[in-house]
Design a protein around this nucleic acid. Structure first.
Lengths: 140, 140
DNA sequence: TATGCACCCTCTAGCTACTATAGGGTCAAG
DNA sequence: CTTGACCCTATAGTAGCTAGAGGGTGCATA
């Protein structure tokens, strides 16, 4: 099948497929006489694997490792577990960060008095970094 | 003060400060006779504002807007509120996405039997994209 | 005075993971 | 025989920095 067909089947953009090939994530397929890429089922499965791992937030480097591991069918799958757990830790950290952030945003937004910028608590909150002496901003 | 001092005071890398100047987020400071950047308090406050907004996850484009708004001290601060709320919505969406992701990762990791890759449920889960019709898997 | 070191300068390229051009070639239908 | 959808390569762009090359400056010390 042609690259456009593979793109449709896997929900990937054509450019992305070529990019994956360029960085060595996907093997270069055979070419037709007119130099078109000619893909088979194995390519489709491999790309589907990549897409699914990417959707789950694995980095391209992690996907590369997972692909490599998935080919070594008789080795222990502990390495796979390690990658997945590492990724879960990263996701956990991100969630915690975003929640803290959301809390601060909530506080800021809640304090907005809808007045003029000079009295805006959101702007104040942003200006009040611990490195800047408080209220020094009026004097400019 | 020199760029290194400003960097230390605001917890910013020197390169980042130069980058902010380059993209027009910070005004170019005066130069000393030896062409060193010479910063004052106003620069420090402005950079502190930027850093704080960035720490809260605002994009550089949003920071640029917030900076512009913070200078218009007699205008309504509703525009500030709009930016903050839009950002909160984005953060909320990201949290939801990451939580869904975490759930799936949890499921995958929980199923890891620590056997060989051929029987690895994590690899299976990644391979089982709905777009690829797979032959029946032995231990479903 | 010479030397060393930390710091400053510009310019350029690199990172992730794509996305989007420009400037062509191929192929089937009308 | 032309139109339009597709394909090709190569290059540059996106965010938000970060790192390096290759050079200049300023101050303390031997």
């Amino acid at each position: 099948m042609k690259i456009g067909d593979l793109a449709r089947l896997t929900g990937t953009k054509v450019e992305t497929i070529r990019y994956y090939e360029q960085i060595g994530l996907l093997l270069a397929p055979a070419r037709t006489s007119s130099n078109y890429r000619d893909y088979g089922n194995d390519h489709r499965q491999r790309l589907a694997f990549v897409r699914r791992a990417r959707d789950l937030g694995f980095s391209l480097e992690q996907v590369r490792e997972l692909l490599g591991l998935s080919d070594k069918r008789d080795q222990s799958c502990d390495a796979v577990d390690v990658i997945a757990r590492a990724h879960r830790t990263t996701v956990d950290r991100k969630i915690a960060e975003l929640r803290a952030l959301r809390k601060e945003l909530d506080r800021m937004i809640g304090e907005c008095g809808h007045g003029v910028v000079a009295d805006c608590h959101i702007i104040e909150a942003l200006a009040d970094a611990d490195t800047s002496p408080r209220r020094a901003i009026d004097s400019q």
